[in-house]
Amino acid sequence: MSLITIEKKVLEANNSIADENRSKFKEKGIFSINLISSPGSGKTSLVEQTIIHLKDKMKIAVITGDIQTNLDAERIDKFGVPVVQIITNGGCHLDASLVRNAYKEIENEDIELLIIENVGNLVCPSEYDLGENHKICVMSVTEGDDKPLKYPLIFHHSEAFVINKIDLIPYLKCSLDEMRNNAVKVNPKLKVFSTSCYSCEGMDEWTKWLFHQCRM
């Protein structure tokens, strides 16, 4: 029997494609975000509202991932921005090569902000670098204020945390302060926003921050 020393990171292949994506985006002047959340937290609604608030200020494109259907791309297409749907056929997360292939479809477009909407899943996508500038974690108030402690890894990896559907707060026991405090416990540097895609509350603050991140 022989021992062979390897010492190789399991996700090295993904990470090197993610680095290629990152260099390509940088070279093209694209700032990219990777939106990660549970299914149903309102990612697509947040993308729609973000487009509404920013499309007169900057050129936006969207790559959206789902296990099945083109429904999200159809929703976003109505706003007149370039959009690519990735269907993972059961895959629980996007990886860097899926994003590389999807980006090829829009590489001739003039893009300043690329929004990558991951498959709805709070666990698996947190391990995969896609080449984005920032991971953004989204969570709705109906999910409970203790969620950041239950799913710490994604909060740890994220630059910002968007608490969505805050218009529902009057009907819930969820405490916004508690949710924010729990998230900051996991990641003290986390920038936290509270939004409603229904009333548009908090949308100005979120989109202003995003706009500044792109122009930094």
Binding site: M1, S2, L3, I4, T5, I6, E7, K8, K9, V10, L11, E127
Partner: peptide, 11 residues
């Protein structure tokens, strides 16, 4: 960490 450290094979 998530790393493959070493393998052992039958010669």
């Amino acid at each position: 960490e998530m790393k493959v450290v070493e393998i052992e094979i039958y010669d």
